[in-house]
């Protein structure tokens, strides 16, 4: 166990190092320079470009820039090129905005996909199963932004509720229940949209896991000794089918930072995804690189946690 932890920490640190190198290279070797971001601006004199380059070590060779950048990142001194604010602080603020979206979306995903998946596995080939299957293909295939617009039209024309942004503009002097309802309305659509793909994929996965277990010999034994169907399905089958999903708790971690660029820009939600999008538009390299680095850390931590959970949950796995 300890050797496993040690080995994977070393391995993941090496991976992280290469990720940082690769992302740095991608950004800096791409054509165009951040100092040329606005050539038409008359205030952008050559002297300013030079000062800008000095300030952010852009005149140094690439490996020196790399060391400077990650030194700053680990000491928490990285600043955005656009507004000179601390990048970590900026990310933290946006992260707090994205967090409710992520939590509600995850709750939707996990509470919806399990009942649907289990039911379609039990009634395999029946009407419920077939319509759930078709519906999940539909949800996987629909472009997120198109679906978002359909829902916006529907909600706005049906319920006359504004849904853009985190709260209704100029909605300050309302009573507390009104403010809360307003927040919930604004949260519901983007979170639900973020969950659609997840529900479709996860419910299919639950179904196939459940079918796999239902075909095992011990389920036949359970039927043969005359157990009631509920007990066979939920006590014998479901418990074993749930095993792989425990480990998926680790894998949802990266979703924390990824957010959805498209959904957040449609709903003008000031979250992580939109900040990353704005940083890309402004060629704000420190922000792009930091977002990338943090998300790589989350991916690696997520796989690590899921490996550990698997060992804890499944006694058949020995290292």
């Amino acid at each position: 166990m300890i050797s496993f932890v040690g080995r994977s920490v070393v391995q993941k640190t090496i991976t992280l190092f290469f990720v940082s190198v690769v992302s740095f290279l991608i950004i800096h070797l791409a054509p165009g320079k951040p100092s040329q971001v606005d050539p038409l601006n008359p205030k952008f004199t050559p002297e300013m470009v030079e000062r800008f380059q000095k300030e952010f070590h852009l005149d140094k060779p690439l490996y020196v820039q790399y060391i400077y950048f990650y030194q700053d990142l680990f000491t928490g001194k990285t600043v955005s090129w656009k507004d000179n604010q601390s990048v970590l602080k900026k990310i933290w603020e946006r992260f707090l905005n994205s967090l409710p979206l992520f939590i509600v979306g995850t709750i939707f995903t996990w509470t919806l996909s399990f009942p649907v998946g289990i039911r379609s596995a039990i009634f395999r080939g029946r009407l419920f199963d077939r319509s759930a299957t078709f519906l999940s293909y539909l949800l996987i295939s629909i472009p997120g932004f198109f679906f978002a617009y359909i829902l916006i039209i529907f909600v706005v024309t049906r319920f006359h509720v504004p849904v853009i942004g985190m709260e209704t503009f100029g909605f300050v002097n309302a009573s507390l229940p009104h403010v809360i309802m307003d927040r919930i309305w604004h949260l519901l659509l983007p979170a639900g949209l973020g969950a659609t793909g997840g529900v479709a994929v996860l419910s299919r996965y639950v179904r196939s896991q459940m079918l796999e277990v239902e075909g095992q010999d011990y389920i036949r034994t359970a039927w043969a000794k005359g157990l009631p169907p509920e007990q066979v399905h939920y006590k014998h089958a479901l418990r074993n089918a749930l095993l792989p999903f425990v480990t998926m708790f680790g894998l949802i971690l990266p979703g924390l930072i990824g957010g959805s660029v498209i959904i957040e820009s449609i709903f003008s939600w000031p979250g992580m995804g939109r900040m990353a999008y704005e940083a890309i538009l402004a060629r704000d390299y420190p922000v792009i690189l930091t977002v990338n680095f943090v998300s790589a850390v989350l991916v690696l931590a997520g796989t690590f946690i899921s490996d550990l959970l698997y060992i804890v949950v499944d006694p058949r796995i020995r290292l």
Binding site: T15, I257, S295
Partner: peptide, 24 residues
């Protein structure tokens, strides 16, 4: 397989967006 692991660390849509935005 380590190269694969490294590639899997990038958030894919974000990576695509970054590269496409930087390239012509």
């Amino acid at each position: 397989m380590r190269i694969v692991d490294i590639m899997l660390c990038f958030p894919s849509f974000f990576l695509i967006l970054t590269v496409v935005a930087l390239l012509p």
